[in-house]
Nucleic acid binder design. Structure first.
Lengths: 219, 219
DNA sequence: GGGAATACTGTTCAATTGAACAGTACTTAT
DNA sequence: ATAAGTACTGTTCAATTGAACAGTATTCCC
């Protein structure tokens, strides 16, 4: 799709707004009146927009403008990004880096989910969270002690950042990230120590668990 | 909103289809041409539809039809009924008897869910299903042995029918409904015996589990 | 039996509309 | 330098369009 000039973007926006607010596209003269120029200027713009694939001028009929650029009449893209392990350097929790998008109402979770994380491994089985489950996460930088959080752990070796689910236990500056499975050892972090201390992993809270979605039945 | 005649519904549908497919409403003559009548008939119909609040005729302009009845451009109402324990006599699995409706895409579950059931009790904890979880159920009358099913159990005492989640194990005519928690005893049914035998509960398969939705985090 | 609503036909008319043709001025790539 | 694209003005014109007015047949309600 060819790039639009600022003026063309303005005009396309006006058409979109008209369709949304009035329910039908404007006539060439409507456009001209709104922008204060002659009908033929509007016609030129429509032709340019049609050539660039943003609209289709369906026929010689009145208001026969069909919006076709990405978001014509479609529903607003509602859903949640599925975040997880991603390539080195890039921030894991940025929606742009989503593996895929799920069509779920964020309000099905409490608190409301901002993204979804796929559980890998059985470290949380005793909390009823199985491998492969999708966990809804509400993005926040802190969490009450005892809650289940999505922790971002940064691996110095690979330079990769990844999300893990853990129970968050905090006592002063001492933080314990506990798995809900006796076979896994808890990770301990002392926030008072320098972040550059290599003996402990660097971590941050990505958010708190707001719920869970599982597809299929276990075993 | 006044009721529409079949003909008016046809015409409203045609306008909706036009807006969806073409991107703009039809002219009165477009309508007339499509239905094979004169322009004025179309005009009469539009006036009737406007009077009944289904559309708005915005001005004297070409194609100035604005759809306003409930679902103008909105998404189709999609969701799943939440079924569970219900009043005596009524069939539990009928969507009309839903406790409430959840706005979930049925295809998030595999197999696709037809309704949702709220888990009450800890009988399935070992399968990662906790009390309060919502389980997506695909309606079917039979299920492979070993799968987790929604079983309809009929209580002769209260005359109530209720849904319970169980692991379904079948060996010939012998059926075992097993809880995924050692503290619960399995229920045994012999299909060869008469359904009127009061020594065993009457049951039927409501469907198989297609997945799970949990709001909030455990404990 | 009368009134209202539905479901049309048919004609006329003025306003609106898109299209075409002829220009102008400016910018941006080649 | 020059061709292409942008961003307009101005005029003319035929086609389309909604509106109005005058009818007709049928059904439904009171």
């Amino acid at each position: 799709m060819a790039k639009l000039t600022p003026r063309q973007t303005e005009i396309l926006e006006f058409i979109r707004r008209s369709v949304r607010d009035e329910g039908y596209p404007p006539s060439q003269r409507d456009i001209a009146r709104h922008f204060g120029f002659a009908q033929n200027a509007a016609r030129d713009h429509l032709r340019a927009l049609a050539r660039k694939g943003e609209i289709e001028i369906a026929s010689n009929d009145a208001r026969a403008i069909r919006l076709c650029g990405e978001s014509g009449v479609e529903a607003p893209p509602q859903g949640l990004p599925l975040l997880g392990r991603i390539a080195a350097g890039a921030p894991v929790t940025a929606p742009e880096n989503a593996e895929s998008w799920l069509n779920i109402d964020p309000d099905l979770f409490t608190p409301r989910a901002d993204f979804v994380h796929r559980v890998d491994g059985d470290s949380m089985v005793d909390a009823g969270i199985l491998s492969g489950d999708l966990v809804g996460i509400h993005q926040q930088t802190d969490a009450p002690s005892g809650s289940i959080i999505a922790a971002c752990l940064y691996d110095d070796m690979t330079g990769e950042e990844r999300i893990t689910l853990k129970r968050y236990l905090r006592d002063g500056s001492r933080v314990v990230l506990k798995a809900e499975n006796p076979r896994y050892a808890p990770i301990e972090v002392d926030l008072a120590r320098d972040a550059y201390d290599q003996e402990q992993p660097r971590f941050r809270i990505a958010g708190v668990m707001g719920g869970l979605l599982r597809s299929g039945s276990p075993r």
